[in-house]
């Protein structure tokens, strides 16, 4: 009798889950939905400097935001046809699964479990992040190897502690960790010389560095000890839409590689280089096979820019963050950013 009731209850739960998952899966081709709606719903953060945040005039800016604008440019020829939905780290996956956003471009690390268990699909990395270190220049360190016996300030509740322990153990270095609850406490303690080095994801290290009283007295060490590939995610089950997101990023990388930028894209239409001509849709029909127009990549570069441009403007040398290109350089410059050819 009782077990029967439990079975009934389980049945209800399963039915509910099935309804939820199936309605998410049969949401249909996302591109058509976006065109019907007239704008792209893009999930961004509630404020991460350089990646996605509203500026003083209420305009969304950042590296992740520019990816959304690039996709909107490719679809609508208008970078402003984006509805930015600000999501907390907790709500972001639910929002994507429920269809509240078409795309998650929110500083999200590509991991196996997020693809295997959460139904996300990642395909490109628009920022290679990783755990990094910052030290006072007066310490005279230039590499992690010099840090044996150092005290390290870091924030609890992240994977940073584990990464740190692993790295120092494998390299047979001694260290002492001082752990704080919030990022602001951590950086204040570091500033008060409670520890020799500060450790967090590189993008956060640079953001925190700008909050110091004398930012110029500190140096960010070149090594990264963990992999945090950040990239856009879509729902599984709509490969056509996934392709559009993926190739928008690749188009920006290829444009940088080919020297096509916002300023010269109109000029470049006269170029004889077949690769540039294919990129800008002057030869072949690649854009239409994606479900877009022929000049999709031309639109992206014209409205938003190539990858190098958006990197430098949002997080790189032209921004207060001043993050070095480093691993995010093009493969031809020794970095990891590599795009398959457009042909």
């Amino acid at each position: 009798m009782f077990s029967q009731r439990i079975k009934n209850l389980m049945g209800c739960v399963f039915a509910a889950v099935t309804v939820m998952t199936s309605s998410a899966a049969i949401a249909g081709p996302t591109l058509q939905k976006i065109k019907d709606r007239g704008e792209l719903a893009c999930g961004v953060s509630q404020g991460i400097g350089g990646f996605s945040m509203p500026d003083s005039s209420g305009k969304w800016t950042g590296l992740d935001v520019d990816l959304c604008r690039a996709i909107a440019s490719a679809i609508f020829d208008d970078p402003n046809k984006v509805q930015f939905v600000a999501l907390s780290a907790k709500d972001r996956f639910t929002a994507l699964q429920s269809g509240a956003v078409d795309l998650l471009s929110r500083n999200t690390t590509w991991t196996m479990s997020r693809e295997s268990a959460l139904g996300m699909s990642f395909s490109v990395v628009n920022f290679y992040d990783g755990q990094g270190f910052m030290a006072n220049k007066s310490l005279g360190v230039s590499s992690l190897k010099d840090l044996s016996g150092a005290t390290v300030c870091l924030t609890s509740g992240t994977t940073h502690e584990m990464n740190l322990a692993d790295y120092f153990r494998t390299h047979k270095l001694k260290y002492e960790a001082i752990v704080f609850v919030t990022a602001d406490e951590t950086i204040k303690a570091f500033e008060a010389n409670r520890c020799d080095v500060y450790s967090a994801d590189t993008s956060a290290v640079y953001a925190q560095k700008s909050k110091l009283k004398q930012p110029d007295e500190y140096v960010v060490l070149p090594e990264l000890i963990s992999k945090e590939p950040l990239g856009p995610a879509v729902r599984q089950g709509d490969a056509e839409w996934g392709n559009i997101v993926k190739w928008t990023h690749f188009a920006m990388i290829n444009a940088e590689e080919l020297g096509v930028n916002r300023a010269n894209v109109v000029e470049m239409r006269k170029s004889e280089n077949p690769e540039i001509r294919r990129l800008l849709g002057l030869e072949g029909n690649l854009g239409e096979s994606l479900g877009l127009s022929k000049d999709w990549a031309d639109r992206i570069v014209r409205h938003v820019g190539n990858y190098g441009e958006i990197f430098e403007a949002n997080v790189g040398s032209q921004s207060p963050l001043g993050i070095k290109r480093g691993v995010n350089s093009l493969w031809s410059n020794g970095g990891l950013q590599y795009a398959p050819p457009i042909r």
């Binding site: 404020g47 400097g49 945040m53 003083s56 600000a86 953001a207 909050k211 921004s319 963050l321």
Partner: peptide
């Protein structure tokens, strides 16, 4: 409050 938290993240203004 949410707007304020978002404003905190602006690198153009970040400071102690």
């Amino acid at each position: 409050l949410g707007g304020m938290r978002a404003a905190f993240t602006d690198p153009a203004w970040s400071g102690p």
